[in-house]
Simulated scan of single mutants.
Amino acid sequence: MLKRSIKIMFRLNEKEQQFLIKQVQKSGLSQEAFIRALINGYVPKELPPPDYYSMLRELHAIGRNLNQLATKANTTGHIDKTVFQYEANRLRKAVQDIIEAVTAPERRFDNGNYGDLGCDRPP
């Protein structure tokens, strides 16, 4: 059974439809998911650039290398654990910031400006 059983139909003019289609394509979401995000107060972000995932893989590889270095250092006793933990946390934060900056939807605050929805007045 569908979790969303209520169907809502509405009309757009040509300009609004073209704007919606363009925004949906940029986000990579379906029209339904895009509109649900807006209803819930979020503005979906555009799809990340093609090299985004390769950058993330590289950062994760660095993290794995740091982990291997830490393991080796722990067995030999030649590393400052505080310094290593600081660097590992920095790396983790950098990865998280990249993910958030590129893919996480942003909370939309209602300031009366509906220009980001493709019109100059409230719906």
Rank of each mutant, 00 (worst) to 15 (best):
L2N: 13
K3P: 02
K3T: 12
K3E: 12
R4H: 12
S5Q: 08
I8S: 09
F10T: 04
F10I: 04
R11I: 07
E14P: 03
E16R: 03
Q17D: 07
Q17V: 04
Q17F: 07
L20T: 11
I21T: 11
K22A: 13
V24M: 08
K26M: 13
L29W: 01
S30K: 11
E32V: 07
F34S: 00
I35T: 14
I35W: 05
A37E: 02
A37H: 03
A37G: 05
L38M: 14
L38S: 05
N40V: 14
G41I: 10
Y42A: 02
V43K: 07
P44K: 02
E46P: 02
P48Y: 05
P49E: 15
D51V: 07
D51G: 06
Y52Q: 02
S54R: 15
S54D: 14
M55A: 09
R57E: 15
E58V: 12
L59S: 03
L59R: 02
H60C: 15
H60P: 06
A61V: 13
A61E: 14
I62L: 06
I62V: 11
G63S: 05
G63W: 00
G63I: 00
R64Y: 14
N65K: 07
N67R: 10
N67K: 08
L69Q: 01
K72L: 10
A73D: 04
A73T: 05
T75F: 08
T76D: 04
T76L: 09
H78C: 12
T82L: 04
T82M: 06
F84L: 08
Q85K: 14
Q85E: 14
Y86P: 00
Y86T: 05
A88V: 03
A88L: 04
N89K: 03
R90P: 00
L91I: 09
L91A: 04
K93D: 06
A94N: 05
V95M: 02
V95W: 00
I99P: 00
I99C: 02
E100W: 10
E100K: 11
E100Q: 11
A104M: 14
P105G: 03
E106L: 13
R107W: 06
R107T: 10
R108I: 04
R108M: 07
N111E: 13
G112A: 08
Y114C: 13
G115P: 03
L117R: 00
G118F: 01
C119E: 12
R121P: 01
P123C: 09
